[in-house]
Computed example of a mutant assay.
Amino acid sequence: METETLGDPADPDLACVLGWGNRLDHENVRWLLETLAADSHVTAVQIPITVADFEEEYLGPVLEVVADLEDDYRFVGHSTGGLIGAYLRGEAAPATRTYLSPWWGMVPETAGPIFDLVTRLPISRQVVPTGTADREALGALATDRQIREGPDCAAPTFLREAARAQAGLADVDPDPEAVAFCTLTDRIVDPRRVGDRVDAERTVLYDGGHELFSSPSREAHAETLRAVVREGPAGLP
């Protein structure tokens, strides 16, 4: 995992765990991090693209990151980062938890016996086409570089571990103070699974693709995003 810190160290700590394929130096990711750093001391986390163990390669390293933050740190997780964030419990639980299009379930088109077979393959190379490196899927502001550098294939081991972590959420109580941002037209994650864990009154819908920060509507939601990161549901308009 790669990390970067932004903002004033005197501001409250915030851990921002990016999604699968997001890079710290991508322009739209920079917009997200700089927006959050306006009133938070941000530790941004770029996760590996290929893993073979969710707990060891995703959750464990993120737990190490947040262990170095203040006890009342804030959390923002996008997509796979939101899946990881749902497991931050006990002493690692943040003061506020904000999800951006959390990947809590596969889209229906993905599910089925072929997908189940693929996830059983012990292959840690990116060989399964995903169709995610696409401007329509990500958001209209996705840059050519972002699309070019974003992964368009996944490793079977990554898909297996993601599906296992998603299934494990059945044993993780939802955070009653969490806020989620999502779009109902998401082609990458199933927005119905967001509704399973976050009530409608704590869900902010936006127009665009999977990435709020790559959506033309991002500026309209920037202040609300910062407010709920600071205050939880009390920051909603």
Rank of each mutant, 00 (worst) to 15 (best):
W20C: 07
E201W: 13
V127H: 05
V127P: 04
P108N: 00
D68L: 11
E27N: 13
H210S: 07
D199H: 12
G235P: 10
L212H: 10
Y58Q: 02
M106D: 11
R192K: 11
T203A: 08
R193D: 14
C182A: 12
Y73N: 07
P129F: 12
P122G: 07
R192C: 10
G7V: 07
E91I: 14
C153Q: 14
P9N: 05
C16T: 05
F181C: 06
S79A: 08
T183M: 01
Y73E: 13
R164P: 06
G195Y: 08
P237M: 03
T143D: 12
H78A: 14
D190P: 07
D186Q: 09
T132Q: 09
F158E: 06
D207T: 05
A165Q: 10
Y58D: 02
P94F: 12
P216M: 02
L236P: 11
G208A: 10
D39K: 03
R193Y: 10
A137H: 02
H41L: 06
R30Y: 05
L32A: 09
G77D: 06
A86W: 02
I49K: 06
R192S: 10
H78D: 08
A133V: 04
R120T: 08
T98L: 08
G21F: 01
A155F: 05
H210I: 06
P94N: 09
F115K: 02
T130G: 04
E231M: 04
E211W: 06
E231V: 01
A142E: 10
E161C: 15
Y206P: 04
V179T: 07
F181K: 00
G19T: 08
A92V: 02
W20V: 04
D53Q: 13
Y58L: 06
L69A: 06
A137F: 05
E34P: 05
G195T: 10
E91F: 09
R202M: 05
G131F: 11
H210G: 03
V198G: 09
G60R: 10
A154M: 12
P233D: 01
P237I: 02
D39V: 01
E56G: 15
V51T: 02
I47K: 01
A37S: 15
T157Q: 03
P122F: 01
A180H: 07
F115S: 08
A154Q: 07
M106S: 11
S101Y: 14
Q46G: 07
P108A: 11
V76A: 05
G90C: 11
E211L: 15
E201T: 15
G232K: 00
L24W: 12
Y87E: 00
H26P: 09
G81I: 01
P129L: 14
T50P: 01
V29R: 07
W31L: 08
T96A: 02
A227P: 00
D134I: 13
G195D: 07
D11K: 14
F115I: 11
E109D: 13
F75D: 12
E57C: 13
E34H: 04
R148P: 04
A142G: 12
E27A: 15
H78M: 07
Y58F: 09
G82F: 14
H26E: 14
